[in-house]
Design a protein around this nucleic acid. Structure first.
Lengths: 356, 356
DNA sequence: GGGGGGTTGGTAATCGATTACCAATGTCCG
DNA sequence: CGGACATTGGTAATCGATTACCAACCCCCC
C-alpha cells in the first residue's frame, strides 16, 4: 500500500506531470520517458488511487443501485443484467439492499450520494414512503427507477407493461376454459402490486369473467403457501389463479399439491417474472417473463442521457412482456396443445411454448 | 450538488475549521457557533464529500466483497449476512460478482483495491487460477476468504467443516438402510468441491459401504437434472444420493420424479447448504445447513483483527454444520420416525427434525 | 546563425475535508 | 490591574492524481 505517482516519478527520474502523462497517455512524452515510467510503475507495483482521481475529476466511475432485497431472484437477475450493461460504459456497481424498509433505503441513498456515485438505479420499496428520499436524490444525480417506482412521477422509470402482462395471463387461462380467476399478490405498498392488480381487474372485466376478491400479502413463497391453504379452506376452488410473482406461485403450487389438488387439471396457476427455477418447479410454471435484460439496457441508456437540473419531463418506459406457457395452466380449448412433458432445463425458453 | 464546507462556513460567518469542528464535534466550539453552523448546513443541504474525507483519512469505510455469482442463493444469503454484520462496524459493502471466471475476478480485485476498500471478503471461484490475484490482494489489504479458498493457505478462511457435514449426511442415509451411495457434485475446480468429495469418501469408507464413482459437473439445477437422468439410465439406482449443494439436489429430485422414482421410498436424497427453497421443494429436502450467519460474523471479526504485513500465520476456521432432516431421506431404521408431512414454511427449521 | 513553430518537461493549483499549529481572546486570581 | 492559563477561532498543510500554464528545448529554414 502507498506507492504514489510521486514515487514512480522519482524512481523514473522525471516529474509527476510526466509520469502522469506517460501512464495516462493523454499527452505525448518521449519514448524514453514512457519506457522509464512504465517500468518504474510495474516495478514498484504502482496502483493509481481511485479516490484521489475521483476527487480531482469530480466523477467516481460508479453507479449506485438499491433494490429491496437480493434474496428475491427477480432482483438478482435485474442486478446481474444491470452490471452486465454497465460493463460497456466502464462503470462499477455499488449494490445495496433496502431490506424492504424505507428508512434503510433512505440511509443507503444518503451514503451513496455521499460517495458521489455518478448515477443511481433504484427499485423503491414503498410507493409512498420512499418518495421524499428518492426525489431528493434525483435532484442531485441522474436517477432511474427500475421495476418499482414512487408516486407522483418525479423520476424516470423503466419497467414491464403490467397491463399487457396481466391481459396475456388472464386471456390465457380464459382460453383454457377458466370462468373464475383469483389474483394472489402483495399488499399495495409498491407500484408493482398496484399496477398488477389494476391490470388484472381490467383484463377480467374485458374478458367478462368473474374476478374474485384478490388475496394480498407479500411477494414470498410463504405467502403463496398461505394463500393456497386459504383457497383450499374456501367453499370452492376458482378455475385459475394468477400470481403477482413466481415466488407466490411456487408456494401456492406446493400448498395445492399437499391439499391433493391436481394442477392444471383442477386449477390453472400462472406466475409472474419467469425466474430461473420457474421452469424447474413441479409442474413447470406457466408465467409471464419479464424482459429483464432489455429493462436493464434501457435503464442504463436513460441514466446516461439524464442531466441533473434539466427540466425535461420524467420518462416512463414500459416494455411488453411475453407469456411463457408451461404446464401449470390448462391447454387452450380450441385444439392447441400445451408443451410436452419435462419443460426446459436451459431456462432460455426455447423449448417452451410462448405467445407471439 | 457541490455545496462544500466552505460554503457552510461562509454562510455561518466562520472559518472552515470551525465549521468542520462544529459538524464533527471533535473539538469544542461555542454554542453560538455550533448553532449557526448546523443551521447553515441544513439550509444549504450540505452533504460532506466522502471522497475527500477518504483521501484525507486514508480510509474509505467500505469493505469489498467478491462472490462467484449472486444467482446462487447460497451466495446471496452469505452476502446478506455479511452486510448485516458490517452494519455493526458502520462499514458499507461494495459487492462484485466474478461470474465464476478468474479473469473477471482479478479485474474486480484490482478495481476494489484501486478504490481503496478497507478490507476484502472473497469466495475465490477457482482453487488454482484465483490464487495469484488473491494473494497479491492480501498483501495490500486485510482479506478473508469465505466458503471457497485458494490453494497454498496464504490467506485467512472461514467456512464449513465439510468432513463433519458429509459424515452426517452419509451416516444419516446409512442409518436409513442405504448400502450404496453416490455423490453428485461439481467438478473439482474449487475447494468446496474438493473438500466435499474427500469428506464423502472418508465417510463412506468409515461406514464401510459402497462408494460409487462420483458424478461431477456444476453446482446448478441443470447439472442435478442431468445427473438424475444419468442415474435413471444406469443399471440400478443407488440406495442414496448425496449432493454437493441444494441446487443439484432439487434438479435431481425433479429428474427422479419425471422418471417415476419415488423419493424417499426407492432412493434417499440429501442436499447441502439449506437454502431458502430447500424446505419448499417437493418433497422437502433433507440437507446439511451451512451456518451462514456464524460464518459471516467470524469473517468480519477476522477482518478487523488482520493487520497487513503482520506475519501472523493464516487462520482457517471451519464451523460445524447441522443436518436438517426433512422428507427426501428414508427414516432411520431403528424406530426413530421422520418429520411429519409438510415441512416448514419459515425456513428456520424449527419444525424440522435435526441431528443434535 | 538566429528566429519561428512545434514539442516536451516542470511547477503549482485544484478537488474537499480534516487538523496541527498558532494567535487571539477571555477568565481568574493574586 | 497584570500575568498565567484555558479556550476557541483561523491559517495553511495534507491526502494523490491531474492539468493549465509556462519555460526550455529542438529542428528547420531563411
Amino acid at each position: 500500500m502507498g506507492v504514489t505517482i510521486h514515487d514512480v516519478a522519482r524512481a523514473a527520474g522525471v516529474s509527476v506531470a510526466s509520469a502522469s502523462r506517460a501512464l495516462s497517455g493523454r499527452r505525448k512524452v518521449t519514448a524514453e520517458v514512457a519506457e522509464r515510467v512504465t517500468r518504474a510503475a510495474t516495478e514498484l507495483g504502482y496502483r493509481p488511487n481511485a479516490i484521489a482521481k475521483a476527487l480531482r475529476d469530480q466523477t467516481t466511475g460508479t453507479i449506485g443501485m438499491i433494490v429491496p432485497g437480493i434474496g428475491n431472484p427477480f432482483f438478482t437477475t435485474i442486478v446481474e443484467s444491470v452490471e452486465h450493461q454497465l460493463q460497456e460504459t466502464g462503470h462499477d456497481l455499488l449494490l445495496c439492499a433496502s431490506l424492504y424498509t424505507p428508512e434503510i433505503e433512505a440511509r443507503r441513498l444518503n451514503t451513496l450520494l455521499a460517495r458521489r456515485v455518478d448515477g443511481l438505479i433504484i427499485s423503491p420499496c414503498d410507493f409512498e414512503a420512499s418518495a421524499p428520499a428518492v426525489l431528493n436524490a434525483a435532484r442531485q444525480v441522474p436517477l432511474v427507477q427500475v421495476d418499482r417506482y414512487i408516486e407522483g412521477g418525479g423520476a424516470d422509470w423503466v419497467g414491464v407493461d403490467d397491463d399487457s402482462a396481466l391481459a396475456q395471463a388472464v386471456d390465457h387461462v380464459v382460453a383454457g376454459g377458466a370462468r373464475s380467476v383469483v389474483f394472489v399478490s402483495s399488499r399495495l405498498m409498491n407500484s408493482s402490486a398496484r399496477l398488477r392488480l389494476a391490470g388484472f381487474q381490467l383484463a377480467t372485466a374485458r374478458a367478462g369473467i368473474a374476478s374474485l376478491p384478490p388475496l394480498l400479502g407479500e411477494f414470498t413463497l410463504a405467502w403463496g403457501f398461505e394463500a393456497g391453504q386459504a383457497l383450499l379452506a374456501g367453499d370452492a376452488l376458482p378455475d385459475a389463479v394468477v400470481c403477482g410473482n413466481d415466488e407466490i406461485a411456487v408456494g401456492l403450487l406446493r400448498a395445492l399439491r399437499l391439499g391433493g389438488v391436481r394442477v392444471p387439471e383442477e386449477i390453472s396457476v400462472v406466475g409472474f417474472d419467469d425466474v430461473g427455477h420457474a421452469a424447474m418447479c413441479d409442474p413447470p410454471l406457466t408465467t409471464v417473463r419479464q424482459p429483464v435484460e432489455e429493462m436493464a439496457a434501457e435503464a442504463v441508456r436513460l441514466l446516461n442521457q439524464v442531466r441533473v437540473g434539466d427540466p425535461r419531463p420524467a420518462q416512463r418506459i414500459a416494455i411488453a412482456p411475453r407469456l411463457v406457457v408451461r404446464q401449470t395452466s390448462r391447454p387452450v380449448t380450441r385444439g392447441v396443445v400445451t408443451a410436452g412433458a419435462g419443460g426446459t432445463m436451459t431456462g432460455d425458453g426455447q423449448e417452451d411454448k410462448e405467445t407471439t
